[in-house]
Design a protein around this nucleic acid. Structure first.
Lengths: 384, 384
DNA sequence: TAATCTTTGTTTGTTGGATATACAAAGATA
DNA sequence: TATCTTTGTATATCCAACAAACAAAGATTA
């Protein structure tokens, strides 16, 4: 049952969370401004602010500009009250960052890997975290959690059921990390994390309903609806790489045929080009190589078909095309836009934004670190 | 700004709504049971129940069975405190029902139509509502609102932007009905309404995330996520009839090509069969007509492709195949299931339910009437 | 320059809802 | 018959938001 009914304590916690959220979003801000914006009485704001001050989640920075009377006391979010670890496990790299509570990167560890058996990756992760802990500055709350983004199917309990490109099945990474470091751990699908990262810190900050397409070796989609990640019943939502776009199409490794990612992923591109480097193809295109340019146009068109399906399905505010193929933005953007214009329902196109990531290779790692921070803040506010 | 901050009044309203909801779902129920289930103190429940009694939203039916002590007073939802009108506008019919607050149909008006210009339909609707008002039993709140389901694109303000099969563009049905009857009016897309109807009263009562496919002349999809209708940015979500499933496929009336509804709708079937009656084809199939049976298998397979895409995208609890093609369940169900088994990701298939409507032709009309009731209950509880 | 007005934030007291306690009613059980 | 249980109400208490008064500090104006 838990939280069916409401009472004063819940009201207080929610108002406290609201005050903190306003400070995070709108700092520098005064108590009076918070009262104004939130609708809470200024006495209420004062009392909640004082609690947050005692918890070191915010701090005062002295008087601000007067607007005709007594000068306000300026409040700030204490973004260094603690730190979060964000890890992005790719097919040929592991990226590990330490961020403050506002998603600024303080430390970064990057290692490319050739093979990806779980023990190998686990060893790398472990030593990365250990050295980050050693380098990290002191703070009130220390590391508030570890987030990991994985290219695979992750259930809501944090088990990695399947990560084909890593060769993993049924990996209990969450439990292993929790046992090692005794910290909260969040495991998420890489596309979901990227979506959240861009929504929190990147291209999606102004939008409510965002579809983030992670176009890399395969294609996954992170779905943000009403500013919240949508996970589906078990956490498997967004496997749109295996959306059929050609019923008579070519077989896919998943056993189906005509899947989107068989046409519009990095893998599909490299297969078409008979190449093994996206970067090389981009360089060719930049040097006016007709074939490379044509191949990108083709991939862009295929991406457009899938995005058409996404837009007609979700009527989103924004679609973000992320991950590796975003590197080829210059060559694929126009074909995508043209395909949408020619296929997607007119009403759905209006006010729809097609954008590219602002966080570059950090979308996923920042996303999981943001999950960790969100969880920390929520529990910190509730517990006191 | 409105409801950013919380206070005691909001707590009370939500607890009152919770108590009412429990009575609606679990009647017959006693005050003690409500306290048990909700976690509210029995004194609180007592006071809220007394308010609801005064508002005639619930009533007492005398003592129930003792469980070892004083006998409880049994409470019921007063489903006849008011009534709702639900209207389903189809391409060749208008269906109008009057329901009580629990979705039981009291009066039904049905009229088939040949042509669908707006004034014609409006006249029909108007006289239907008028005669329903005349026949309706007396009640405390009378008609609490009018809901209308339309096969077209409806925005969140209730304007019908486009209903191609009715030949309508930019119709202000909501305003016109409000002016005529001075009652709250809700206009919704027919698939969204069907989804809500089945979720409230039909096949979807046990599920959180439901995709309701309205397969008729065209295909639309109603999306229920976490028990709530998802509408997208403007209210246009679920236009999956225009999801591309064959990039080299045949042109669609929307200007695109390879759209799902060009392959898997009633229209597609009739075109293939060179017929103009679904009912006739079903009769043929029942009389062992090989061609008809083969055609249904084909349509079933095409439906399966689209459902595959839906499942991989949403990881839903349930997919409901509704509207006209559900009449051919006997002939299309197996091909659909086979297609899903052969294409959809294994993890997504587990625990996924493919079902057919339980409300038959009433899915949409019951859905809009349920929208009306939901709005009424919400406002009634808040206002006192 | 002094008087007044504004804005900010705190202090003190009030309000309204949930909760705790006591209790009455009514039936089950020993 | 005495005791225990369960249901529901009445009364008192608690707690968070709110309201009012006020102090601090600066702006404005006569």
């Amino acid at each position: 049952m838990e939280t069916m009914s409401w009472n004063q304590q819940i009201v207080k916690k929610n108002n406290k969370a609201l005050v903190l959220q306003l400070i995070m979003e709108k700092e520098p801000i005064s108590r009076a401004d918070i009262a104004q914006v939130s609708g809470l009485h200024k006495a209420t704001v004062s009392s909640l602010v004082n609690e947050l001050l005692e918890e070191d989640l915010i701090y005062e920075s002295g008087p601000g500009e007067s607007s005709g009377g007594r000068r306000p006391v300026i409040l700030h979010f204490n973004k260094v009250a603690g730190y979060a670890v964000g890890i992005d496990i790719g097919v040929n790299y592991v990226l590990c960052i330490l961020t403050d509570l506002k998603g600024n990167i303080l430390i970064e560890k990057n290692q490319s890997v050739k093979r990806t058996p779980y023990p190998t990756i686990m060893t790398i992760i472990q030593s990365m975290i250990q050295s980050i802990i050693a380098e990290m500055p002191a703070s009130r709350y220390g590391i508030v959690g570890i987030g990991v983004g994985v290219p695979g199917i992750v259930n809501k309990q944090g088990s990695i059921l399947l990560a084909p490109n890593l060769g993993w099945t049924n990996i209990q990474l969450k439990k292993d990390l929790e046992d090692l470091f005794n910290l909260p751990v969040i495991i998420e699908n890489e596309a979901n994390a990227g979506a959240f990262g861009e929504q929190q810190f990147g291209a999606g900050q102004d939008f409510q309903n965002i579809l983030y397409i992670s176009a890399g070796i395969g294609i996954g989609v992170g779905i943000i609806l009403n500013k919240e990640l949508f996970q589906g019943k078990n956490g498997f939502s967004g496997e749109m790489g295996h959306m059929i776009i050609d019923i008579n199409g070519k077989p896919c490794s998943c056993g189906s045929r005509g899947c989107w990612e068989a046409y519009a992923s990095e893998n599909a591109l490299l297969e078409l080009a008979n190449s093994d480097s996206l970067e090389l193809l981009i360089e060719l295109a930049e040097n006016h190589d007709e074939t490379a340019q044509r191949l990108f146009r083709e991939i862009g068109t295929y991406l457009g078909y899938g995005i058409n399906n996404i837009i007609n399905t979700f009527n989103p505010d924004q679609v973000i095309l992320g991950n590796r193929l975003a590197l080829a933005r210059q060559w694929i953007e126009q074909p995508i836009r043209t395909t949408i214009e020619n296929h997607t329902l007119a009403h759905h196109q209006k006010e729809m934004h097609l954008d590219f990531p602002k966080l570059g290779k950090y979308s996923t790692s920042l996303g999981v670190s943001a999950f960790v921070v969100e969880k920390f803040i929520k529990e910190e506010v509730k517990s006191s």
